[in-house]
Design a protein around this nucleic acid. Sequence first.
RNA 1: GGGGCGGUAGCUCAGCCGGUCAGAGCAUCGGACUCAUAAUCCGUGGGUCGUGGGUUCAAGUCCCACCCGCCCUACCA
Length: 476
Amino acid sequence: MYITTTIPYVNARPHLGHALEFVQGDVLARHYRGRGEPVRFQTGTDDNSLKNVLAAEAEGVPVRELVDRNAAAFEGLRESYDLSFDAFIRTSRHPGHRPGVERIWRAIDGDLYQRHYEGLYCVGCEQFYGEGPCPEHEAPLQHISERNWFFRLSRYQDALLDLIRGGRLRIEPAARRNEVLAFIEAGLADISVSRAADRAPGWGIPVPGDPSQVVYVWWDALANYVTALDGGDYDRWWVAEPRKIHLMGKGVIRFHAVYWPAMLLAAGLPLPAEIFVHDYLTAGGRKISKSAGTPADAEAIARAYGADAVRWWLLREVPRVGDADFTVERLVARADEDLANGVGNLVNRVVTMVHRFQDGAVPIVAVDGDAARGLVDACESAPGRVHEALEDFDFRRAAAAVWTIVEEANKYVERVQPWRQEPGDREASLATLVHACRALAGQLAPFLPTGAARVAAAVSGERLPRPEPLFPRLAG
RNA sequence: GGGGCGGUAGCUCAGCCGGUCAGAGCAUCGGACUCAUAAUCCGUGGGUCGUGGGUUCAAGUCCCACCCGCCCUACCA
């Protein structure tokens, strides 16, 4: 399974919205690895965007410097969010990227032609609009008149429709799929795939054979999914691998579900198999905007509340469809409720009882009496339910499935009340509970890598370590 | 302008092809328990399921119109 996130442009530091996509990809990667499936999880940065040039100018620093600094911040999320990506590609640094882009450009040569173009352009979006101001950046548009290279996107309309309708290219959620189909059915016009080089001196990838132009940044950035694969990796992950999954935000579906497949079709390359589109995060009811500063700095939030808490919020609280509003209050409430009072407290009470009644020795007898039915069922069915939910890219449902183990375990404790049981029965109850905690640790692993490891450590071995709080409360 | 998605208890939301679908969690209130991170467990609260029509024996659940929020897309006067 080849899982990719989009590669954000690096005109600013990463915000929580980026973290959402990375964490979703990470959960998928860890989940499938856990099932023994070969996985390549890849992310990176789009260094070649004109927006990076503008940001550098605004800040008065060299583009290289700004790009390197911000790209490092993105890569740093690996630590602060416990991400397990196998590759981090930077379009301006990866040796294979530029040659790869040039190769693809030449491969689609037959579908390229030059044309004079005039229109209103938003540098922020790197896109033309009918009139201003730009809806995304609320900035005035520039009148651009230049000669560009165009791609015969119009030729691929039917092929794209077949691809998506036939399910060879799966787009989730279905609403997004319909959106894409509607867009294509409305008719595809050829698109400009190059920009005048002098607008970004020295930045971007020159068009092969035409140094006056640089490759349109989207053409450049999309190629990363393929150019990041060096040597045998290309055959392994792009040719032989059936499950190639692109994760992205709703704002860039068109590029991934229309331009990118068409580009590959033209170049005669294999196509991606699945596209999952997430919606946006808002912060305190307001749009998170890089250009307006970083009101939701990803790293700062993780540092303040911990990767486990933030990951859990992103996975447990963000719906599959619809924007979600992030507030510190919600983060803290969810973490305390589920992690501290739920998982942490459960493990703590179980381990404490093992110490109090068994002197720390893990009982080996586990009897599945009727009282344990609900708990045993939860443990046994969790893997299947998690898998099913993740196949649907429904992270919230997957997290909820894991949660049922905690819920059932607590109910079980109340039902049997180990502290009142005869030693023999109690031993069986505690064995069942320790077993449940181990199952919980296993199921939690893709969601909370370090937290799950702490749970596992707390309930592993024949003699359990002294109990200590695994997930301290965040609120007072 | 075209297309799409939402509008369900105070809050966040589940409700697939119509008939125990009027629900869950949190919050509130009451109770239980003491193994545990002032935790946990049990019970409780009555919301015209955006508005108005329609189809049907039966509609949050289908159809039409409208209102509100949002998204994608396009701008012909």
